[in-house]
Structures are given as structure tokens and as C-alpha cells.
């Protein structure tokens, strides 16, 4: 019992510590390829580096460190963040410049904020994906790749690219869509099921229009997955589902 309390306490402490060092950030533009220039705005409020004005970026990608990750205890001026006001900082860059790799090699990036000597730092951010430069086949995809709430969206299931046995065996029947507003509230109805159209022997599609299929607030994102049936070892037909994929809707004009 004592051990359980200790473990629980340690867990609560670590979760609290994590929530106190997580950065708030945004990119402009919000999505970009590894070739595109972006401006990164970081709010360090609530992190260990809050209140400091001389801060530096430490960044890495799937293909290696940023060129300005020279030495942890002596970050160069290229890594220095521009202090805007209060706890807000910015820096401009691009994937190919920062990581010195070709666009095709770069898929995602991460960073943290530190002092020059690295004696104080924030937590790492979760990986940020670059928009693909080349087409990457995947089991589930959306067409067009970037859509708004007022556009027709088509979700595809490519069974030939599935790696989970049940997904490889299933006969796909429906796409299940759940939509959310910008505050992550589920829209009405809670989910929409759309009959799949067979495009070829291994590909199925379902199409819908977010603001036509869902009511309430403006849709900001949706999650989708595919439903199908398989015959189990008892010769019974059972339902199987793929995992959900999430799509953030782009603001279009």
C-alpha cells in the first residue's frame, strides 16, 4: 500500500512537472513543407525559462540536429530567439536550412527552449510534421490533402497498404466520421456512417461535406476510421474497425 502511494505520488509529481514546462507555440503559416520558410512564435509562460529574455532554440528533426545545435552549454547567436514582449519569442527558419538535409529526407521536427548555457530549459514539444514534398502512400488518406469545412472531403482506405491482419482480411463497408469544433466539442450527430464505394479491388472511398453532414458550430477537425466485417474461426461474421485518423480542417477563402 505504501509502495502504491509512493508510485502514485511520483506519477502525479511527474505529470505536474511536465505540465509546468510544456511550451505553447504556433507556426505561421500553420502548415509548411521542409522547403517553406516559417515563423515560429513561442510562449514560455509557465515553463522554467519564463521571465528570462535571452533564450535559445535547440531543435532536431527525424534526420538529425539543427545546424545551430553546436554545444549544449554554449548555443550560438543563430539559435537566439527574438524577444517580442513578456514571455513571447519568435524565430524564422525552414527545415532545409535548419537541418541541412534535402526536403525528401525531412518528415518531422521538434524543439525546446533553453538558456545559452543550458542550465535552464523547457520540455521538448511533440513532433511537428512537415507537409510532404513527395507522395507517401498510406493505408488511410484524405482527398484533397487540405480541405476546409465547406469542401467535399473523400476518405480512402487502401487495404493493400494495411499491416494489421484484421484490416487485411476485412470486407470494408462503412466510413465512420466524428467532427469537432475548434474547442474540441463533438458536433451533431456524434458520428456519421457513410457507405463505402469500391474504387478498385483494394481501395474504398467515402465522401462527405463537413458543414453539410454535421450541424452546430463550424467544424474545425474530424476523425475518421473504417468499419468492415471478417469471418472468425467459428465461422461467424464479426465487425472490425481500423484506428481513427485525425484531420485538421484548413481555413480557406
Amino acid at each position: 500500500m505504501k509502495k502504491l502511494i509512493t508510485i502514485s505520488f511520483a506519477l502525479i509529481l511527474s505529470v505536474t512537472a511536465w505540465s509546468q514546462c510544456a511550451l505553447t507555440y504556433s507556426f505561421s503559416p500553420s502548415s509548411f513543407t521542409a522547403e517553406d520558410q516559417f515563423t515560429l512564435t513561442i510562449d514560455v509562460t509557465g515553463t522554467p525559462v519564463a521571465g528570462l529574455t535571452d533564450l535559445y532554440l535547440w531543435s532536431w528533426s527525424n534526420a538529425g540536429d539543427a545546424y545551430f545545435n553546436t554545444a549544449w552549454d554554449n548555443s550560438p547567436e543563430d539559435a537566439k530567439l527574438t524577444h517580442v514582449s513578456g514571455n513571447i519569442f519568435t524565430i524564422t527558419g525552414s527545415g532545409v536550412v535548419w537541418y541541412q538535409k534535402s526536403p525528401g529526407q525531412l518528415t518531422q521536427m521538434q524543439f525546446l527552449v533553453k538558456t545559452k548555457t543550458g542550465n535552464v530549459q523547457s520540455c521538448d514539444i511533440a513532433p511537428v510534421k512537415f507537409d510532404p514534398i513527395e507522395f507517401i502512400p498510406s493505408k488511410m488518406r484524405v482527398f484533397p490533402a487540405k480541405v476546409g469545412y465547406n469542401d467535399v472531403v473523400s476518405v480512402y482506405f487502401h487495404q493493400d497498404l494495411a499491416t494489421i491482419l484484421n484490416e487485411q482480411r476485412m470486407t470494408p463497408t462503412k466510413a465512420v466520421i466524428v467532427a469537432y469544433d475548434e474547442n474540441d466539442n463533438e458536433l451533431t450527430p456524434a458520428s456519421v456512417e457513410i457507405n463505402l464505394r469500391k474504387e478498385n479491388t483494394t481501395t474504398w472511398r467515402a465522401s462527405f461535406k463537413p458543414n453539410y453532414s454535421f450541424t452546430g458550430n463550424t467544424p474545425a477537425k474530424f476523425r475518421y476510421r473504417f468499419k468492415g466485417t471478417i469471418v472468425n474461426s467459428n465461422n461467424e461474421v464479426v465487425e472490425v474497425l481500423t484506428d481513427f485518423e485525425e484531420v485538421v480542417l484548413t481555413k480557406l477563402k
Binding site: E134, F135, P144, D151, V152, S207, F208
Partner: peptide, 23 residues
């Protein structure tokens, strides 16, 4: 007909789709 302009520009395999019967 709906076209993904980025896919058209980059020569991706899925570029256009006839959506007449979707709605």
C-alpha cells in the same frame, strides 16, 4: 470536378475526383 492543386503541381498520383454524385 475537384482538384488538389498541390497534387497537380507536384505530380502526385491522386489529382482530381468527379464529385457530382457525392451531393
Amino acid at each position: 470536378t475537384q482538384s488538389d492543386i498541390n497534387a497537380v503541381e507536384k505530380g502526385f498520383p491522386y489529382k482530381t475526383l468527379d464529385i457530382t454524385d457525392v451531393l
